[in-house]
Design a protein around this nucleic acid. Structure first.
Lengths: 216, 216
DNA sequence: TAGATTGTTAATCGATTAACAATC
DNA sequence: TAGATTGTTAATCGATTAACAATC
């Protein structure tokens, strides 16, 4: 019932990874202390994050690795598969199709669309690129859960509108552009431009030229 | 002097984009109100963010579009170029090399390394893939500012260590793995797996099976 | 001048951290 | 039992929002 922050969900992903590793290493039980160390956070934070969803540990002992991993898997919804349609068959679209982690995570790319005649008909991964004009009909027949926007910025909003109108439940946006969509549709952005600009900021020492001087 | 939050920097990127568009549309002056609307935030937030760096507007009038854009450009450090070395010439590495936004943002990919003999020698974009064993010598000669980790997770930490040891100032990490590096080296992560898991969480309604029931 | 809008201070909100009783 | 570690409540911290005097 309490709203879960995006930071908490991000950390759950981290814990999930760490637990998979620990399990592979043959670890049986882990404390919030050790789990925190592995992912660069604090024990209190680990316990607080988990407490939003239930009690998964045993006082005095810690957490059963396999059990906690299954629970987080369920919490994150990774115990089912999602049908994904990608719009845009450029560099990013192609990289996504070649990315094995995608399907390992339960995401099946079942369709790719583009509007460039040169790209339509090409085969990426296991699917053939179709004309975006066919997207509406395809959606009716194939029930996409998630739409991926991998087009240039100027067309991103129109593509998002189209995906919303055919009923996707979520959009993953790779275009460096703010998308406006109804609150009922989940939206996450993977923005390389923003990461670069963040990095550039971190690398730039001489900011705040307008700051007051020492004697002020 | 006050520490600037990553959220603030992210929003500066958004404002920068919006200003570029407004300028292209011929807009001369813009209020915090209109700027906020375009990027889905609030006028107070816009003014607060900018106030960390100086006073760029005029009371009663708003902000001069071209001027504010230049100022944010300077704040973000986008008025210079960075020398980037990419390690890992797989799907992601290839997508980066094909990504025009990279160089448009001031980031020049001057070298690509891999350890796969099949990939060494291939030409990606304008550069030839070199053996990662040559990275140390190349760094001495070519002075990389930024290292990009685009390898599979198991080698990501070792690659990061190598990049730190040859003196890069920042690392951009695409591997779904927490990297531990010295505080003096800036780190940003672009994590597709995390975005997917976040989306999966948002799509999953039946969480918190361990939550107390109504009568408790 | 009157209306508009900034820059900044104060109030609110939410997330992180600390502390500790419960209990294995 | 004694030591360890959870789950949860309280304290702290930081970021967002609201309010308003300054001023174009």
């Amino acid at each position: 019932m309490p709203r879960i922050s995006e930071s908490t969900v991000r950390r759950l992903s981290h814990y999930y990874r760490a637990l998979a590793e620990v399990e592979a290493e043959g670890g049986d039980v882990i404390s919030s202390q050790r789990l925190a160390e592995r992912e660069g956070t604090t024990p209190a934070q680990v316990r607080k994050d988990l407490s939003h969803f239930g009690s998964f540990g045993r006082r005095g002992l810690g957490y059963n690795v396999a059990h906690l991993r299954r629970e987080i898997r369920r919490i994150l919804g990774l115990d089912r598969r999602w049908r994904v349609a990608v719009v845009g068959a450029g560099h990013i679209g192609a990289a996504l199709l070649g990315y094995r982690g995608f399907s390992a995570q339960g995401f099946d790319v079942v369709a790719v669309f583009d509007n460039d005649p040169q790209r339509i008909g090409q085969v990426l991964g296991a699917v053939q690129v179709r004309d975006v004009a066919e997207l509406r009909a395809a959606a009716a027949a194939e029930a996409f859960d998630i739409g991926v926007v991998a087009t240039p910025p100027p067309t991103a909003q129109a593509v998002a509108d189209l995906l919303v109108s055919v009923g996707v439940s979520a959009i993953l946006n790779f275009a460096p552009r703010k998308l406006f969509i109804p609150a009922r549709v989940a939206l996450r952005n993977v923005d390389l431009t923003m990461a670069l600009e963040n990095l550039s900021f971190a690398l730039t020492p001489a900011r705040g030229s307008r700051r007051r001087r020492a004697q002020d």
